[in-house]
Amino acid sequence: MAAATAPIKVDASTDELVSHAAHFMSRTKKDVVEAAVREYIDTHRDEINAGIKTALGQLNGSDAAAISLVTGLSLDDLNDLGGLPE
């Protein structure tokens, strides 16, 4: 099965850097971006995993916990705003 592609928007200066790198490395812009993203994720994997573990630790399976995580509001703040239906 062919992989789907999705557009990524970057500012003009980043697009220019990618274009120059692709040209001088005889690669496509897609190849340069893919390699850069993979390298970035590999470099920051421990940080990413720590963030995932923190997020999962805040979830207890309730709607209130999920909304708290997404909004940044504490469970007490949500209750002060009227709480959530059971």
Rank of each mutant, 00 (worst) to 15 (best):
A3G: 12
L69T: 00
M1K: 13
E47A: 11
L84K: 01
A4P: 04
K30G: 10
Q58S: 04
S13N: 07
H44D: 12
D63P: 06
L78T: 03
L73M: 15
L75C: 01
A35D: 11
T5Q: 03
A55P: 00
T14D: 07
A66F: 15
S68H: 05
A22I: 09
G72Y: 10
D80N: 07
A65T: 11
S62K: 03
I67D: 01
A65I: 11
P7D: 10
T5F: 00
L56Y: 00
Q58C: 02
D76G: 07
T43V: 03
A4N: 12
G51Q: 14
I52A: 01
L17S: 10
A36I: 10
A36V: 13
T28V: 08
D77S: 07
A36W: 02
I41W: 07
D15T: 05
M25D: 11
T5V: 03
L75S: 02
G72A: 06
L81C: 02
D31M: 10
N60V: 01
T14A: 10
Q58K: 10
N49F: 12
A35L: 06
I52H: 05
M1G: 13
G61K: 00
A12K: 15
T28H: 06
K53L: 11
N60E: 07
V10I: 13
S26K: 14
D46A: 15
G61H: 01
V37K: 01
L59T: 00
N49T: 13
L59W: 02
R38H: 08
M25H: 09
T43I: 02
I41A: 09
A66Q: 14
M25W: 04
T28W: 03
V18T: 08
G83N: 03
E86V: 14
L84H: 02
D46M: 13
P85L: 12
Y40R: 10
K9L: 13
E34F: 06
H44V: 12
I67A: 02
E86P: 11
D42N: 09
M25T: 14
E86S: 13
A64T: 14
G83M: 03
V32E: 02
L78Y: 04
F24E: 08
D42T: 11
T54R: 14
D46P: 12
H23A: 15
I67K: 08
T43G: 04
T5Y: 00
E34L: 10
A65N: 07
R45E: 15
I52D: 01
I41T: 10
L84T: 02
V33E: 03
E39L: 09
R45I: 14
L17D: 09
G82T: 05
H44S: 11
I8R: 02
E47G: 07
A21Q: 12
A4Q: 12
H44L: 08
K53M: 09
A21V: 14
V18S: 06
D77G: 00
S74R: 05
K29R: 15
N79Q: 09
A12L: 15
L75Y: 01
V33D: 04
V70N: 06
L73D: 10
S13I: 10
V37G: 03
